[in-house]
Amino acid sequence: MGRYRPPRRRGSPYITPEGEQALRSELHQLWKVERPQVTNAVHEAAKNGDRSENGDYIYGKRRLREIDSRVRFLNKRLDELEVVDRAPADTNKVFFGARVELETEDGDRVKWRIVGPDEFDVSQGKLSMDSPMARALIGKRLDDQISVQSPAGEQFYIITAIEYDGV
């Protein structure tokens, strides 16, 4: 079994200002804080002699490769991202950055914010705009019904609220 992995489909190039700041903070943390510490630890471990059986050296080098890989990714990604920092002209429709409240068939209410693929976090109610749910929501209006195919089957929702930051 080889290490080849097919290339991932590129996500949408949009991001909120908060998401961009989080990526820049991660880049700073990795490059200015964590990498110098790991480099120093590898340097100290290398002084101990036989590197082939030196766990600190081996795992330190592995961590440096992980950090360098993530830094390269973040630098490339930040260059191609477009920060969306304003509400759309028609705030009655769901677009990128919208906070949407949905009602399920059972009467339960769920809230989502549609964000870029680099910042989604379902536990915080942030939904990637590339997800099936977000694709079903984009372009819809208040009181529209949407259907989303899920592993549990088709689910129906009604849009009960649409909000944008700064509006």
Rank of each mutant, 00 (worst) to 15 (best):
D108A: 15
D118T: 04
V71I: 13
G125L: 07
D108I: 06
G116I: 08
A136H: 03
A87P: 03
Y157H: 07
S150A: 09
S12N: 15
V38Q: 00
K61P: 00
T39E: 06
P117W: 03
G55D: 13
E103T: 09
G19R: 00
D106F: 10
A41H: 02
V94P: 05
R24G: 01
R63K: 14
G153E: 08
N75A: 09
D56E: 12
I58M: 04
S128M: 02
P17Y: 00
E80Q: 14
V122Q: 10
P17S: 04
S69V: 06
K126I: 10
E34I: 07
Q37E: 13
D118P: 00
Q149S: 13
V148S: 07
A161C: 02
Q145Y: 09
E53R: 15
D79M: 14
E34C: 01
G2W: 03
L102V: 12
P6R: 13
A41Y: 02
W31I: 12
I58K: 02
D56H: 11
V115E: 02
L23F: 05
D56Q: 12
R109V: 08
D90P: 10
D79H: 14
E163K: 15
V94G: 04
R109H: 11
F156E: 10
V71K: 00
E66G: 03
H43G: 13
R8H: 11
I138M: 12
P117K: 03
G139E: 07
R70P: 01
V33Y: 07
E163H: 14
G60I: 01
K93G: 05
D108C: 06
G139T: 06
R10C: 06
E80F: 12
R9C: 09
D118I: 00
E53H: 15
L27S: 06
I114V: 12
Q21I: 00
A41K: 06
Q145A: 14
E103V: 07
R8I: 09
A45F: 05
M1H: 14
I162G: 02
D121I: 04
N75G: 12
R113K: 15
T16I: 01
Q21E: 06
V100Y: 02
R5H: 12
R24Y: 01
Y4S: 13
F73C: 04
F95C: 08
G2T: 08
L23V: 05
Q37I: 08
I67E: 00
E20H: 05
L27Q: 09
S131E: 06
A161N: 10
D108T: 09
R9M: 14
K47Y: 03
M1L: 11
S69Y: 11
R35I: 00
K93W: 05
G166M: 04
I162K: 01
S25A: 15
V38M: 01
I58E: 01
E154R: 14
F156M: 07
S147C: 03
R72A: 15
R70F: 03
G11S: 12
R62N: 11
N48M: 12
Y59C: 09
D118C: 05
